[in-house]
Design a protein around this nucleic acid. Structure first.
Lengths: 329, 329
DNA sequence: ATTTGTATTGTAAACGATTACAAAAAATAA
DNA sequence: TTATTTTTTGTAATCGTTTACAATACAAAT
């Protein structure tokens, strides 16, 4: 492995000149540039990022914090982050916390120890106090899930109005008894989406029944399935379900089918996120579409700006209601 | 941000001593150790990995190459890799190539430029020549998909016998006309699984019909859906489908339902991979289970060994046939 | 030919850690 | 006490870059 010194020697110039060629500075004569380039080729030289990064005091790595990589909701966001990062000459360090504080701390340490230049946090279960403290000295952006008063910029959608629209849609097509499958209320998005649900009901003079609101532990299929089981054990079953994530909705769908009921004839369902699967279920799932790629892209752009010392403002992106088979007729 | 020099000054010792404390060397007196630890605390010092990594000529980052993060098949493998990596004090750089050579090269550059200490390649579409050349100077392990004669160690399952078992199962429950939804034959696993399919048919004196073998472009739902559409357009339809991935199988399932047919009564289906979603379809999917977590774990362990200069042998792990509703009765 | 100004190149000091080796301090032996 | 050994600490080089500043080369002007 050649170093810049060997290249300099080979080319008969100084290391400074080699560095200049490497960084495309224009103060180098064509003749010397060629000498250097020849030497580089001859020695098969690759500049070490370890040396460069130390000198520049940067890692050009962005840390992306998320609870779980297997939740497809994040896939497209990550795609947006990664594509944008690469375009800006950064790379991303994808970090699954698994809602595990110890793991989270290992990743935070990477930032404290300069191995990452900033953080995009998408983990609803993140330790917000630690995050805020970290934000004093490091660039941080919240994506999708956020803490309002943390002072840390975020990019997200309006969860209240998104949920409102979803439930409104169910009401419009005639449903009078609508259940909510929500996740844990300790998460902001859960509270916000429940607010939207309540708002829609109240606006239409429908009664808010506690028994129609189920809170799940996790965000996976089986949580949705269990929630639906609980709902179906009640004497008078609802005619529609609003689940705060597609994964939960698909689990619910599974349980409905298992009990021999039909969707949407017996029970209609609306999900949230528009993950790829939601179009592969039978019936296909009505859902709220978040601009995931754009969220990722925006978050990455904001973070890089922040790293460069530019102040950034939080951004709220648009969402969309996608009507499909699970709420037909 | 304090440096090791400031800590040394604050503690009234030399940087060497601070470094010794940092690295837990035992040649430091309790008294000085405490002085140093106090200084560290007082200055809120965090050692810079940029400095350390340059000095140690390592990044302690493992590059994980995969075609697409949204394919859930990889989720559990990644989990295995990451958990193992962290235990060994490494972190992972998750890199989606999107089957894009340019992207791939950006990631390879990270290794060439010392920003990653090794590669776990899971990308079937990887440029194998480049990979082999890179393997001359860098630690590389292939996971799941591999090139036999590349000389690069791999960890995988026996795809031929796995496919054989899947098809054998269909034959045993009485199917005489079994279609294969395969991906592109340029991939080794595709050829291997097709081999297993053929072996099972031949062993049971069943005719190999070209029209029953469909090759798809991609590995997503819609590829499976389109493949199934082609199959159902034929005059005499098969009574069972073997798809080389659950995603394809689920797409096929979707199309079968769309045409008003039932699974498994009209057509039975077997998938491959046992992704989480395969248990959420209606009916649930019979599939081949790969030991994904263990594959990831093994690959990470092999890679770290390789980085440390230890020679490693390729490993073939066990698979399992998981019989569920889609091949019942 | 000399001066002046500009364009190009080189020297050497960073960046922040680790570590071989030397030096000092402490412990043991004589 | 002094000599010897062992333990603890310090000095300074090193990892591989970038870049301020100094030095040189070259061109234009006198």
């Amino acid at each position: 492995m050649a170093t810049i010194h060997q290249v300099a020697k080979q080319a008969g110039v100084s290391v400074a000149t080699v560095s200049r060629v490497l960084n495309g500075q224009d103060s180098v004569t064509a003749k010397t540039r060629i000498k250097v380039e020849d030497a580089i080729k001859k020695l098969n030289y690759e500049p070490s990022l370890l040396g460069r990064n130390l000198r520049n005091s940067e890692s050009r790595l962005l840390l992306v914090l998320l609870p779980n990589i297997s939740n497809p909701f994040y896939s497209e966001i990550i795609n947006g982050i990664e594509t944008t990062a690469i375009a800006l000459n950064y790379n991303i360090l994808l970090c699954e916390t698994d809602t595990n504080a110890e793991r989270e701390n290992i990743y935070f340490d990477l930032v404290r120890k300069k191995m990452a230049d900033g953080i995009i946090s998408m983990d609803p279960a993140v330790n917000i106090d630690t995050l805020v403290k970290l934000a004093e000295n490091h660039a941080i952006i919240q994506c999708s899930e956020y803490a309002v008063d943390s002072g840390i910029p975020y990019v997200t959608i309006d969860n209240v109005s998104a949920a409102y629209r979803a439930v409104k849609h169910l009401i419009r097509i005639g449903h009078q008894k609508i259940a909510l499958i929500n996740s844990d209320e300790k998460y902001l998005y859960a509270r916000q989406r429940q607010l939207g649900y309540q708002k829609a009901l109240e606006e239409n003079d429908m009664e808010l029944e506690d028994s129609l609101i189920i809170h799940t532990q996790g965000l996976d299929f089986s949580s949705g399935q269990q929630a639906m089981k609980k709902i179906l054990m009640q004497e008078e079953r609802p005619s529609a379900i609003f689940a705060v994530s597609d994964l939960l909705a698909i689990g619910a769908l599974k349980e409905i089918h298992s009990q021999g009921l039909r969707v949407p004839e017996d029970i209609a369902i609306v999900g949230f996120d528009k993950i790829a699967f939601s179009n592969m279920t039978h019936p296909t799932l009505t859902t709220i579409s978040q601009p995931m790629y754009e969220m990722g892209k925006t978050a990455a752009e904001m973070l890089v700006k922040k790293i460069q010392g530019v102040e950034v403002e939080s951004i709220i992106l648009d969402h969309e209601l996608v009507i499909r088979e699970s709420t037909l007729g």
